[in-house]
Design a protein around this nucleic acid. Structure first.
Length: 312
DNA sequence: GCATGTCAAGTTGTG
DNA sequence: CACAACTTGACATGC
């Protein structure tokens, strides 16, 4: 690897891979609650145990892959420990036959992450909604986020990134409920929490005041900002979002993606296989930031974008 | 083997 | 009103 003089504009950017691989033979497994519920408890646990062990081994391989390929961040898919919080089949690592092996693998992951300085994040699924007026939604969200906080402790992840949720006809009221619920989160979650602008409801201009007030950094998704714009230009949003991280002594976090069908034909929201280099904001090129690449071709898209920007 | 329907969970906009 | 979209299809079933 050429680490020195020839790398020009993008050598300060840490690129991130999201969740899974397209070509590299690293896979994560799943199991549904319905399947598990048909089994007696002991078989449930041995089934889940096998899958969890497989998944943490795959996570370790993922970190090896990214560090071998000059990728500096990895987003971990939420169901790493499948159905961990499901009311009917929930379990703890101590319940699993391979619990000890799984814990050893987590230890290896933490060490590897620290040694190679890989930034790890989580992006909990869309049903985690801190702004909901429905108590049961908040309860489920709290339970799921607690699990994400545990996972983050186990792998030494830095960021748990959430959207602000629904509007319910009143943005201010929704953000008010969100603020109230943030305070109730356990420290493992609160200390890692970030809010990301989304493509239908909450823009950077909506979230920045809340983030400033709560001292929670903001993840800036420029694709969402283009789909759901506000009064800020990309340059302004970039600048203001950066301060939410820098005020906390942390590295800013951005997302990039390209529209599957281009900007003109149909909805621009679905993600393309690769990133169109023109979609990469030129004002990002000299920054020391993390940019997660949200593209269907996964690791191939990250490597291609890194190459395209180097040659730009 | 391979095609197809299913899977815990929320909210919004489109056709 | 059904369905897609969202950070991500994988798995179970039936032919």
């Amino acid at each position: 690897m050429n680490q020195g003089k020839n790398k020009k504009s993008t050598n300060r950017i840490r690129f991130g891979l999201c969740c899974i691989f397209r070509q590299e033979p690293i896979r994560f497994r799943q199991v549904t609650a319905k399947t598990l519920q048909r089994l007696p408890r002991s078989e449930q646990l041995s089934r889940v145990s096998e899958i969890c062990l497989h998944n943490v081994q795959s996570l370790y391989k993922s970190l090896q892959y990214v560090s071998d390929n000059g990728i500096g961040a990895f987003r971990i898919l939420s169901p790493l420990l499948p159905r961990y919080t499901h009311p009917q089949v929930a379990y703890t690592l101590d319940d699993l036959p391979a619990g000890e092996l799984i814990n050893e693998e987590f230890y290896k992951i933490r060490k590897f992450r620290q040694q190679y300085d890989i930034r790890l994040s989580f992006h909990p699924d869309q049903f985690n909604v801190l702004s909901s007026p429905r108590p049961e939604v908040i309860r489920n969200t709290m339970r799921e986020l607690e699990y994400q906080g545990l996972l983050a402790d186990l792998v030494d992840a830095e960021v748990i990134n959430l959207h602000a949720g629904g509007v319910y006809g009143n943005k201010e009221a929704a953000l008010g409920r969100l603020e109230k619920n943030v305070v109730k989160l356990p420290e493992s979650v609160r200390s890692r929490l970030a809010f990301e602008n989304d493509d239908i409801s909450f823009t950077p201009a909506d979230l920045l005041p809340v983030c400033k007030k709560l001292k929670i950094p903001m993840v800036y998704d420029v694709h969402h900002h283009r789909c759901n714009p506000d009064e800020h230009t990309i340059e302004e949003a970039t600048e203001r979002v950066m301060t939410t991280w820098q005020d906390l002594g942390r590295e800013p976090y951005f997302h990039i993606s390209s529209p599957k069908n281009g900007w003109l034909k149909g909805s621009p929201k679905p993600h393309a296989d690769f990133i169109e280099p023109a979609d990469f904001p030129s004002c990002w090129k000299e920054l020391r930031v993390t940019v997660d690449v949200e593209a269907k071709a996964k690791e191939l898209a990250v490597l291609k974008l890194m190459e395209d920007l180097k040659n730009a």
